[in-house]
């Protein structure tokens, strides 16, 4: 089944953007999702959102950018749901956010784990999911390669 037939929207959850590959990986996944006709929504910290706001000024890839806390509040309090969710992780807090998104939504959650401790962090994901894991900090290529191996793009 085509990914676009299974999902009409995707939520990308971003933590602190201190590892450079995060913004590139977000835009890459957003671009691939847009090709599939899937609406892309971003929830992140203020600095993560600012990086994307100016990197995608004309909104070629991103449909909506939202505050992380407000997004979680909408899911818990109002029942907002996003059928597909990518959580970007490079520290322990990211693991907590991934577990939370998996717990509060009825969604397919993909943890995208990168940075120098990616492999160690990936062992802390204890829910059933397809993980994207690559030791990558400045060069995005290893992470992009694993994204393409795990996510079965149609287009």
């Amino acid at each position: 089944m085509r990914i676009s037939e299974r999902f009409d929207s995707a939520l990308l959850v971003l933590g602190c953007p201190e590892v450079p590959v995060q913004t590139t990986a977000v835009l890459y996944i957003a671009a691939r999702l847009k090709r599939e006709g899937i609406k892309v929504l971003i929830a992140g910290t203020p600095s993560a959102r600012m990086l994307l706001k100016y990197a995608d000024l004309d909104r070629h890839y991103i449909d909506e950018v939202m505050d992380l806390d407000m997004t979680i509040d909408g899911i818990v309090e109002s029942g907002d749901n996003y059928p597909l969710c990518f959580v970007f992780i490079h520290n322990d807090a990211g693991i907590s956010y991934a577990a939370t998104m998996n717990s509060i939504m009825q969604s397919k959650v993909h943890p995208v784990i990168f940075g120098s401790s990616a492999e160690e962090l990936s062992t802390q994901i204890n829910f059933d999911c397809e993980k994207v894991v690559a030791v990558a900090a400045h060069n995005p290529k290893p992470l992009i390669k694993v994204i393409d191996e795990v996510i079965k793009w149609d287009v």
Binding site: D69, I72, D73, I75, V76, E77, A93, I95, S96, Y97, A99, T100, S103, I104, Q124, N126
Partner: peptide
């Protein structure tokens, strides 16, 4: 409690 439990004005983020 479950992740997302609201206490004061924050939702708790964490591993269940």
């Amino acid at each position: 409690v479950s992740p997302g439990y609201k206490i004061f004005d924050v939702h708790i983020i964490g591993v269940p």
